[in-house]
Design a binder for these strands. Structure first.
Length: 239
DNA sequence: AATGAGGGCAACCGCCAGCCG
DNA sequence: TCGGCTGGCGGTTGCCCTCAT
């Protein structure tokens, strides 16, 4: 079958979206929905291909998208989910309300990969060459092993379903495994208890030396233990 | 103040799976 | 059952911004 012609072959616009294009797209979707992405640009009067419109909407214009920096909890969740799901960014994004797969993918490749890379000992304590582009006001790092989100709404405060990831790990179903706001409170409290596990450190979730294979196993154990412990108050587990 | 390097992120590309006629 | 169409996904690219020199 023939591949659909791309934007440039059809004389359609490419590249960054203008505010005007954004406005038209949002207005059209709010009015008519997006039942057919291919027909949408023509109906809305946008000189873009449907794919481009969809991407723009999904990754940027959707009203439920949470802009701004990732909290430490979110980053830890990404690391954990990636550990279980691999590069299934959409599956990971589905468990992080307000975050898109593209955003998570970017964060993974720009921040978290480095965070998880084993650091050479000579550089382990070296100052970063560059300062972070943006500060993260919503994540307060303290001297101890704990980080505390300032705003629950900016962490994973909305009801977060981690069911599918756990389904992949086995034993759980969507209906049986729901995490709500207090989950992270539980987690933080337990993080203090399990400070010996090396999960949370000032430098990162896996300790300043990065994850050794053993650390990776410990990480898995940590999360499993965490889920089981949390089940007393918030989570129903059926094993 | 100028400039080169590096990082972050939006957008594109190409493939795949599912739906429908 | 088959082929075409569409939406969705993951990988990659390239521009722009920031920082160090």
């Amino acid at each position: 079958m023939g591949r659909a012609p791309c934007c440039e072959k059809m004389g359609l616009k490419r590249g960054p979206w203008t505010p005007e294009e954004d406005r038209i797209l949002v207005a059209h979707i709010e009015r008519h929905g997006h039942s057919n992405w291919r027909a949408l640009p023509k109906q809305a009067g946008i000189l873009r291909c449907g794919k481009s419109c969809r991407l723009r909407w999904v990754n940027y214009l959707r009203p439920d998208i949470k802009r701004g920096n990732f909290t430490r909890e979110e980053e830890d969740a990404i690391i954990h989910l990636h550990h279980m799901l691999g590069n299934r960014w959409s599956a990971i994004a589905a468990r992080l309300p307000g975050r898109t797969d593209n955003e998570i993918k970017n964060v993974w490749h720009t921040n978290l990969v480095k965070r998880l890379e084993p650091k050479p000992s000579s550089q382990a304590n070296a100052a970063p060459k560059r300062k972070p582009k943006k500060l993260q006001p919503e994540a307060v790092t303290v001297d101890g092993p704990i980080t505390v989100p300032v705003s629950p709404e900016q962490s994973l405060s909305t009801s977060t379903t981690m069911a599918s990831s756990l389904e992949n790990a086995g034993s759980f179903t969507s209906e049986e495994f729901q995490i709500d706001d207090s989950f992270w409170s539980e987690m933080r409290a337990m993080t203090v208890d399990s400070s010996g596990s090396g999960m949370e450190t000032e430098d990162g979730a896996f300790g300043a030396d990065g994850p050794s294979p053993q650390a990776t196993n410990d990480d898995m154990d940590f999360w499993l233990k965490l889920f089981v412990q949390a089940s007393d108050t918030q989570i129903l587990l059926q094993i």
